[in-house]
Structures are given as structure tokens and as C-alpha cells.
């Protein structure tokens, strides 16, 4: 697992403190140690793992509505990482899942399998843009591609990082109990050549969940533009 510069700095600081503490202990008379204070067990940072509860999220969409994962407890939730600038995602291109209509077809097919499926789109590439521009851009993409799902803005990228979202698109399927069941590629047709014969991993995962089975595959390497955190 990689560490941020802040984590490195903290580790370096901790090391210095430990060294200084050790030096002080070696040169001064021993003193009775204070009783250790009870502390909670360290909790690992939330990250998305198949078979474990999906990381919580609280984000505001481009209509200023707040969405929490817990709002959709009891429903299957599909997350799609999105970037209006990416030719595999929101920019007009033959390979774009939105401008080609593949994303809207997926939503239609998902609702045929389970009308209660909640589909959320998340944009984690907002860090280098002004908030108003990000919202305007996503509103424009929504209008251009007739996107019906809420588009959530992950301004600081925390949610994207907690899910380890790498690409746009990068898909996640969460079951009715809040357990992550699929992560990865949108389908097996990055170049949009297979048409109806393409396998959409998200749809297949939801179909499996609806009959009480685990998705297989549960983890397919995502393709697309890198998420620019």
C-alpha cells in the first residue's frame, strides 16, 4: 500500500520522536511509567474489497442533493466513476459508454432485472477545476447524453480513493446488504465493436445477485482514462 507525503512526514516525525525518546530514556534515571491509557484498536482506512462492506459515501450531486450509501440500504447500488472529459466516459466518442448509448442501455437492462437498482455516477476528477465549472460541465454532459442517474461530485477525491477507483468508467456493484460484490470493467467491449454480444459485467453481476448467487467474475480489470485525483 502506498503512503501519502503526509503519512511519510508523520512516520518520519514519529521516528524522530522515538529516537529522541529512546535517547532520553538512556540518559536519565528510570521513572515509573504511567499506566497505559486504553485506546481503541487501530482501524484500517476504508477501502473497497469484494465480499466486505462497501465504503460509506456522502456526496452532493450536481443538483445539490445529498446522497449517502445508507440511503439505499436494502437496494442493489451500482456506482459508475465518470469524467466528462474522458472519451471512454463522458466525452463524445465512438468508445464512450455514454455517447454510444451503452450506459443508458445498461440502466434500462438493470431496471428490467430489478426496478429497485440505484445507479449513481461519481466524478472524482474535480480537484483541478472550479466547483461551478465542474457542475456546469456535468450538467452539460447529462443533457447531451440524457443521463438520468444522479451525478455526484467527489471534490476531494476521498470517495474515489476509498473505492480505489482507477478509471472512467470504473464500475462497482453493492448488494442489498451493503457488501461490495463486483468491481472493475464496464464490459468486455472497450472499443464498442461487439454490440449485443458484448458481456456487461455489471448487468451479469446484478443478475447473479437477484438469484442469490455471487457474481463471477467479481473483479475485472477496468479500462478507460485514469482518474485524475
Amino acid at each position: 500500500m502506498s503512503m501519502s507525503s503526509t503519512q511519510y512526514a508523520r512516520m518520519a516525525m514519529t521516528s524522530v520522536i522515538l529516537v529522541l525518546t529512546a535517547a532520553a530514556a538512556a540518559t536519565s534515571a528510570p521513572k515509573p511509567l504511567p499506566a497505559p491509557k486504553p485506546s481503541p484498536a487501530p482501524t484500517p482506512p476504508p477501502s473497497a474489497t469484494i465480499g466486505l462492506p462497501a465504503p460509506q459515501l456522502t456526496l452532493i450531486d450536481i443538483d445539490d442533493q445529498t446522497h449517502q450509501l445508507s440511503d439505499y440500504a436494502g437496494r442493489i447500488v451500482v456506482l459508475e466513476w465518470f469524467n466528462a472529459e474522458c472519451p471512454y466516459s463522458g466525452r463524445r466518442s465512438p468508445h464512450s459508454i455514454h455517447s454510444s448509448g451503452k450506459a443508458s442501455s445498461l440502466r434500462k437492462n438493470l431496471h428490467a432485472v430489478d426496478p429497485q437498482v440505484m445507479y449513481l455516477i461519481i466524478d472524482s476528477t474535480a480537484r483541478n477545476h472550479k466547483k461551478a465549472a465542474v457542475i456546469a460541465g456535468n450538467q452539460s454532459a447529462r443533457k447531451s447524453w440524457k443521463i438520468e442517474a444522479p451525478i455526484l461530485i467527489d471534490f476531494d477525491g476521498k470517495v474515489g480513493r476509498s473505492y480505489k477507483a482507477q478509471t472512467t468508467p470504473h464500475m462497482f456493484v453493492i448488494d442489498t446488504a451493503g457488501i461490495l460484490r463486483y468491481q472493475g470493467a464496464f464490459d468486455d467491449d472497450r472499443k464498442n465493436k461487439s454490440g449485443e454480444t458484448a458481456t456487461n459485467y455489471v448487468l451479469e453481476a446484478v443478475k447473479k445477485l437477484k438469484v442469490g448467487e455471487l457474481p463471477a467474475p467479481s473483479n475485472m480489470r477496468p479500462w478507460g482514462c485514469g482518474v485524475k485525483y
Partner: peptide
């Protein structure tokens, strides 16, 4: 218009 608006967002300045 929407395409132009989209392009404006995409490219910025």
C-alpha cells in the same frame, strides 16, 4: 449550445 458549453468546460481557458 450544449455541445459548446460542454466544450467550454472540457477545455476551460
Amino acid at each position: 449550445a450544449s455541445v459548446l458549453c460542454f466544450a467550454t468546460y472540457v477545455v476551460g481557458k
